[in-house]
């Protein structure tokens, strides 16, 4: 479905991404893991056509990445949606939450007012938020609620692929877990493909079937999640990332 071939990106002459190539099939879920500065967010921006690659190709269902013309962009975004990292400013602060969520429906569909309202309410409930919140401005929401609202907004137009760029990184641990569980259930229900970008390997089991590790803009390895703890087969860098949480784990097992 999504096909990335020999993708390179340079910013101010500095290589950010080098020779990235992978694909995502219908309903598949892939995780991209790397430290900050590994180029994983740039990759998300390239797939969302918010930046243009220096060279290489991105195809979705055979269509190339849009570069001009509103119509081709619209077509692209109808199929691919993204949830950004929680910075508290990805929803327009001057609009009510209902208006924020209505936005993609106005732009992508021909629903009338009543249908739009019905849809927004449906998805608002699906991500587990209270109907009364819809009248508020985005600033009233807590971090967890904010990300749920963004998720609902991304899912409203029923995209085929959802990209989550560090979606849970700024949240408390319990909220992270709830969010991952919500994603798993929605993915099962809607059968959408998922590209989950994170720095935390421990979030992935249960959510993603494949993992790609990114280091300084280069693809280190791509493997099935079931082989994650198979240290003999893993790249040394992947093992280092895994071991980051090991020292906590040892202390933990000692006391519980």
């Amino acid at each position: 479905m999504l096909e990335i071939q020999r993708l390179y990106k340079e910013i101010h002459g500095r290589p950010i991404l080098q020779d990235i190539h992978f694909g995502i099939e219908d309903g598949e879920s892939l995780a991209i893991v790397g430290e900050s500065g590994s180029g994983k967010s740039t990759l998300a921006q390239l797939i969302m056509a918010l930046k243009q690659p220096t060279s290489g190709h991105i195809f979705f269902d055979g269509r190339p990445l849009p570069s001009k013309g509103i119509l081709s962009y619209r077509e692209w975004y109808r199929d691919i949606q993204i949830v950004f990292q929680n910075t508290g400013s990805t929803l327009n602060p001057a609009m009510s939450l209902f208006q924020c969520l209505e936005e993609p429906l106005i732009n992508f569909t021909r629903y009338n007012r009543a249908e739009r309202k019905h849809k927004v309410l449906e998805y608002w409930g699906k991500v587990g938020l209270n109907e009364n919140l819809l009248r508020n401005r985005p600033g009233k929401l807590s971090g967890g609620q904010y990300q749920r609202a963004c998720l609902a907004k991304a899912l409203l137009t029923r995209p085929k692929l959802l990209i989550c760029d560090e979606m849970v990184s700024n949240l408390d641990v319990l909220l992270q877990q709830q969010m991952i569980e919500l994603l798993i259930s929605i993915q099962k229900e809607q059968g959408l493909a998922l590209l989950f970008i994170t720095h935390d390997l421990t979030l992935l089991p249960g959510l993603c079937s494949n993992i790609m590790v990114l280091k300084e803009g280069k693809q280190v390895e791509l493997f099935s999640t079931s082989a994650l703890y198979d240290e003999a087969e893993r790249d040394p860098y992947t093992v280092t990332l895994l071991n980051s949480s090991k020292m906590f784990e040892t202390a933990w097992n000692q006391w519980t």
Partner: peptide
């Protein structure tokens, strides 16, 4: 440069619509 302007592009708002609905009210 605000993230919500980037986000509004992804939600299908372009050109004049971004200006009138997302930039000017803010």
């Amino acid at each position: 440069k605000e993230p919500y302007i980037t986000a509004s592009r992804v939600s299908g708002a372009f050109g004049l619509r971004i200006i009138t609905r997302h930039m000017i009210p803010n």
